[in-house]
């Protein structure tokens, strides 16, 4: 890496320039996490006073049916939603990478769902699924696909699929954006060379483009997994965690405890969420080999 612009001195200067960022990270990330971690060792309920109970909040979480249900739901949702988002997002990116007429317009259109705040888009989906006047039932009934209106969010699996559609619709554009940037970094002479060697379009994609996209896809996977792990707004608006608690995410579960005044248990649940997302991030980064010389 040695080059003309190499900085030889200036350790102190560097700290000075990095200080605002470090300050920001400490004030808004490290400090709150440490605070949550600290408070997770306490029975900190507004109406009971504070008491050190060490790991009791954590042991309680593992035997708490509500937490287990929420944890199971969240992991299942990630396992289904994230691969779907990556697949659809990559497909969009590949299409948008082609020399299409009005390409700029299509790109902007695909990004719209991502630009809409989640609470607003969840509200839109709620109106689509509405039993009495929703678009989904309008189409189902008028096209003859269903005899009468369908209660889309009436079962655990129905709610799951409803949430899945709303979430994938919103976040696949984000994946498309990242992958599109990656696609544009793939040297076109490599692809041209492969074509000279009589590779089909699919082979070019699979053998040339895809391997070069690996770092970008890993980043997308990482972002989407962590983001889905803390899913809250779509669920809060769309199903409220129902029916029968079947779509309660860990974040929503923790939120309910904070609202009820139990800051200790709410913190422990949040910390478990943080640990899982930290562990997953570490795993992804290891697997993608970011740590090695790139």
């Amino acid at each position: 890496m040695a080059g003309r612009g190499e900085v030889v001195t200036g350790g102190r200067e560097a700290y000075f320039f990095i200080a605002p960022l470090l300050l920001f990270v400490f004030a808004f990330i490290v400090f709150p996490i440490a605070g949550t971690f600290f408070s997770s060792f306490f029975s900190d309920v507004t109406f009971m006073g504070k008491k050190f109970i060490f790991l009791s909040n954590y042991t309680h979480a593992f035997s708490d049916p509500g937490f287990r249900q929420a944890f199971g739901f969240t992991l299942t949702f990630i396992a289904v939603a994230v691969p779907l988002e990556l697949f659809i997002g990559t497909a969009f990116a590949v299409i948008l990478d082609q020399e299409l007429p009005l390409r700029g317009l299509w790109r902007a259109c695909v990004l719209i769902p991502w630009a809409i705040p989640s609470a607003v888009s969840a509200r839109i989906w709620q109106l689509i699924y509405n039993y009495g006047y929703g678009l989904a039932n309008f189409i189902a009934v008028h096209s003859g696909l269903a005899d009468g209106p369908v209660n889309w969010t009436g079962t655990a699996s129905g709610s799951f699929i409803a949430l899945l559609a709303a979430d994938v619709w919103k976040t696949a554009p984000f994946v498309a954006l990242i992958v599109l940037a990656g696609l544009q970094a793939v040297p076109s002479d490599l692809k041209a060379q492969a074509r000279v060697d009589r590779a089909t379009s699919f082979q070019v994609f699979r053998l040339v483009t895809l391997p070069l996209l690996k770092p970008v896809l890993t980043v997308a996977l990482l972002f989407r997994t962590i983001d889905t792990l803390r899913i809250f707004d779509v669920i809060y608006v769309l199903t409220g965690g129902g029916p029968g608690g079947s779509t309660t995410s860990v974040s929503l579960y923790a939120y309910n405890y904070f609202a009820g005044g139990d800051f200790g248990y709410g913190s422990a649940v949040s910390m478990l969420l943080f640990m899982v997302s930290f562990g997953l991030s570490w795993l992804y980064v290891r697997l993608a080999g970011f740590g090695e010389a790139a």
Binding site: G242, P243, G244, G245, G261, D262
Partner: peptide, 23 residues
Amino acid sequence: IPYYTQVSSILQRHLNSALSGAS
């Protein structure tokens, strides 16, 4: 009772589950 919110959210979950026919 001070812990009404906590017990109410448990009750809501189970009542709603019975209404949905899941239990």
